[in-house]
Each structure stands twice: as C-alpha cells, then as structure tokens.
Simulated assay, not measured.
Amino acid sequence: MDFKAIRIFEEEGKFIPKIVKRNIGDLPEGDVVIKVIYSSLNYKDALSCSGNKGVTRNFPHTPGIDAAGTVYSSENSDFKVGEEVFITGYDLGMNTDGGFGEYIRVPSSWIIKKPKNLSLKEAMIYGTAGFTSALSVYELISMIEPEDGPILVTGASGGVGSHAVKFLVKLGYEVVGVVGNEEKKDFLLSLGARETIIRNEFKDLSNRAMLKQTWAGVIDTVGGDPLSMAIRSLKYGGAATTCGNVAGGEIPHMNVYPFILRGVRLIGIDSVQCPKEKREEVWNILADSWKGDQLEDGIQEVLLEEMLEKVQDMLNSKLIGRVILKHSS
C-alpha cells in the first residue's frame, strides 16, 4: 500500500524536504504497523528536517517523534487491529521513520495504549512536549508545595514550557514565565501565568555564585544562561528540572555553592528512554487529573502540506504554542 510522507533528502551537502509517495514495504523492521492519524512538531523534528546529524544519522528520513493512530497490522497479540495507540520517544522520528508519514512500523515495546479519557488528538496535543513537561512537573511537585513560592518556567511559550504553565496553574502553583519577546507575553498570561519576563531581561552580568533567593522551583526547557540564572536564584531547598539545550549545553558561571549552601537540587528529565511503567503512570495522570479545559489553547492543527512552513517557523523562533499534524487520509 502506498502512502504520503515528508521525506528529507541529502543532496550535495544540502538537506531537501519533499512530500513523496512511499510503500508500507519500505518501512523499517518492527512487529506492529500503525496508520498514523495525528503527529506533532517538536524541536527534534525541526532539527531532523534541517539535517542535524546529532538527531538523525542517515538520510533520506521521515521525521516525527510523535505518532497516534490505529493498529493496521500486528504480529503481537497484545495489540489488535483497529486499536487506538500512540508513541512518544524511543527512536521514532530520529533514525526510525516517524509520524510525518501516514504509516509507521515500530517495535511493540514502544507503543502505549490510549487511556480511556484521552483522544488521539489530545495525545498528540501533549505529545513528547507534553509528556516531557509532565515528567518535569511530576518530579518538581514531589518536593515543592504551592505555598513554598513561585515556580519559574524558562522557554515558557514553547511546547514543553506552555504545557508546564498549564499543569502548574491547574495544580495551584504561582507561575512566572520567561519568553523570547513581547508578542509572546499575552499568550502566556492567557494560560494563567502570574507574570512574564523577556529573555533579554533575564540575565545577570555580575557572575556572582548566588543571586537573590526568588524561586521555589524551576522548570527549565532551554539550558545555558537561563538555567544558570535560575539555579543561582533558587530559594533554600528549592529544585530545578532541566530537559533542553536550545540556549546551550553548558551552564555558565556555575559552581557548587547553590547546592551546598542552599541545598538546591538539579534534576535531569529524559522522556526518550523513560521506563514504560512510569510512562504509563504519567500518561494516565495526563488523561485524568491534569487534563484541563485549556488543553487546546494555543494549538495549531495543520495538514502535511503545511508542516514544512511550521518547521521553518520553529527554527526561526517564530512559533508560539504547539503544532499538531492531522493526516488527511
């Protein structure tokens, strides 16, 4: 059977995206074939589309690290034809052809059965971004109570950050978000953030080991200077989670003093190889107590033919909120 997919080709050192026809027989090995109904756009997808070899080693390739749909065929008795399922993480869309194609073939161990209270569209509105955000919030609230003080979210207008704002507000926390520019402030305030800070204003030129104690906790999605600022301004006993590096893989001006003098904690978040038991636990929370009325706020739904334009918007830091892909067939 033929189907449509976005395919990234390497031609004379350049990476060229095309929408092509493929055949299910061309898909990589796996014991379950899924007819993809929804996917979503994540920063890793944008990097893969641009030929980043740190994300995708071999081309041609189909990005899409998220996919939700129905089982088309299965060699595993745990998954029945027509059953609604989804995948986030593992190698999907990185070196295994992903959700920017209308069909995927994957190992059954990667697949999550859709919780009863969650639609396929809602699963992709969350996607890797929402799941990563949920893991971050899940870790933070085990240590920080709402009365302890405000929570700072860096990269707050992006997919992970905007979900974190929604979750924290729903759980009763006071949230302050760092955003890239003025036009993103209203979006964040509409999600319930108490206040926003423009990224260029969130900086410290003193390079002091510790700054004024301001935040009870931090959800960091960008790394680099913002994470350094956030850690150095945590309150005593505070904690920060970190899951991204768009602002840099280093943490400048950092030393041990916030950790040994204020007892702060830094927690790394990995959504790719997260154990399946924890993955299912968090997805069930997302389908139930954390699912709010604002889930679809800030969501853009696009067709396959529109996705590459959104990829460029993401690479150029012009994207606000979250983009999901709806396959037309």
Rank of each mutant, 00 (worst) to 15 (best):
A5N: 09
F9V: 07
E10D: 05
F15K: 04
I16Q: 04
I16E: 08
V20Q: 15
I24M: 06
L27G: 13
L27T: 10
L27P: 14
L27V: 05
P28D: 01
D31M: 15
I34G: 07
K35A: 05
K35Q: 03
V36N: 06
Y38K: 07
Y38N: 08
S39C: 10
S40N: 10
S40P: 13
L41K: 01
Y43F: 12
Y43W: 13
K44A: 13
D45Q: 13
D45I: 02
A46I: 08
L47A: 02
L47T: 03
C49V: 14
S50Q: 03
G54H: 07
T56E: 08
F59Y: 14
P60A: 05
T62G: 08
P63M: 12
P63N: 11
I65M: 07
I65W: 03
A67V: 06
G69R: 06
Y72P: 04
Y72C: 14
S73N: 07
D78N: 14
E83V: 15
E84P: 15
F86G: 14
F86D: 09
I87N: 11
T88Q: 10
Y90T: 08
L92M: 07
N95W: 03
N95V: 06
T96V: 07
T96F: 03
G98I: 00
F100E: 04
G101K: 09
E102L: 00
Y103W: 15
V106L: 09
V106T: 13
P107K: 01
S109I: 01
S109C: 10
I111H: 05
I112R: 11
I112P: 15
K114Q: 13
P115R: 08
K116D: 03
N117T: 08
L118T: 01
S119T: 04
E122K: 05
I125G: 00
G130F: 00
G130L: 05
G130I: 02
